[in-house]
Write a protein that binds this DNA or RNA. Structure first.
Lengths: 232, 232
DNA sequence: CCAAAAGTGTTTATTTTACACCCATGA
DNA sequence: TCATGGGTGTAAAATAAACACTTTTGG
């Protein structure tokens, strides 16, 4: 361990893996890079960290800039620091993943960015190590969502059980039994049944639920077992 | 998003939370800082990241320097980047936690560091945000060890079931049923029973086990349910 | 009335838990 | 021989899984 003054200084950035769900597919937001090098190439949403800003604050700022939304679900994923990961200059990047209700997303007025949603199963080539980062984010999302009910964050405040089940099925690429799914999700005690129904999905209509935010935040360290067939 | 050239550069460091187990208590290694400011104060083991070095490589180097050991279990924990966390100069730090068999640890010849082991329940005041980092590491260790059998890494290559159970009990501060513990651990199929016994712990003696490293590395993404009573 | 999707019930299998019991051995 | 800790057996409780059945309603 040596003195501060002898040490190199590096660029410090954040990259955001923004997941969205459109009712059909799990998607990831990418942009066309607005500056050289690789201007116009697909890239994760990111930015440099300001002088008096934490990585978390920078990521929130970037998210806000792109989606117009505050207070999104956001979580530190991993820090990427291979010395040659950015071909221009050594840059350390903290990756965050964020979950947004895609319907709440308003198209950014600022046309410097050209955001696009890609299915997570069909991502384009991204610059630098961004494909690797996105892969890790997908893994982490599946891992975490199997234990903690966080996929709510991808849906509107009011959602139906079939919608939620469909989302889980998209994330895990498999079919769930609706009876068991219902019971399991209700047994978390984190959902509150509302009085009105969504009538678009079916003739009968499905009741809306919303998250009991109090219990939700209180229970974030308890394990659930939300994805069947993981343990053998 | 602006040009590279306009951005600030920051110092970039790693901090290692080194867990060890002495058969009685879960411990954490801290050192007396060898340079100003705060020379002589307790601190996590850390160091700056070299010019062509990743954070992972830097952490491994620091670990080797301190313990004399290679190939330790090591995992990226979290990146700390509050602008004022280091009072000297803005420093971003990637924290890693490592697990070592305390008996394998050889006292470092280099007396610049003064490593000491503290019980994780009774840590001294550490510099900067290191107490916060250590807290997070403890949480993460408990979280992860409840799902994946990684506490093996804190024991010698050969260990007995009672030893392992005792370790779990120390980590979770609770008592486990030995019958259920045995069955659960054996059901992971990751342990191989050896022919010899440890006769120090009891008159009857307890069989040694070792980790089936092949299966161990293959199964690292499967969930187990190693800590009873987590789900209600 | 019927197809289609929502939602409920029920049976079976599996896992978890609690706790009793047997075993080996050094003092 | 007996106290001590290691190890096994087993019944009851709780969970999970599979799948059949009922409900609602627009066309």
């Amino acid at each position: 361990m040596r003195r501060y003054s002898q040490q190199k200084r590096f660029l410090f950035a954040v990259d955001c893996i923004i997941f969205g769900f459109d009712g059909q597919e799990l998607k990831l937001m990418v942009i066309q890079r607005g500056f050289e090098p690789f201007k116009g190439k697909w890239s994760l949403v990111g930015g440099f960290v300001g002088e008096k800003e934490s990585a978390e604050a920078a990521a929130a700022r970037v998210l806000k800039q792109l989606t117009g939304l505050d207070g999104l679900y956001m979580e530190q994923l991993h820090t990427f620091s291979e010395h040659d990961r950015d071909t221009v200059e050594r840059t350390v990047s903290v990756a965050f993943f964020a979950l947004i209700d895609i319907q709440r997303y308003k198209k950014q007025i600022n046309e410097d960015y050209h955001p696009a949603w890609f299915s997570i199963n069909d991502l384009p080539d991204l610059i630098f190590d961004h494909n690797e980062i996105a892969e890790l984010a997908k893994e982490k999302l599946r891992y975490k969502a199997a234990l903690h009910p966080l996929l709510f964050e991808l849906l509107p405040p009011k959602f139906t059980m079939p919608q939620l089940q469909n989302l889980y099925q998209c994330v895990y690429n498999t079919g769930f039994d609706k009876g068991n799914f219902n019971r399991k999700l209700l047994s978390t005690k984190l959902l509150m049944k509302l009085k009105d129904k969504d009538k678009l999905g079916s003739k009968k209509g499905a009741f809306y639920y919303k998250v009991d935010t109090k219990r939700y935040s209180a229970s974030f360290n308890t394990f659930f077992n939300l994805v069947p067939g993981q343990n053998k």
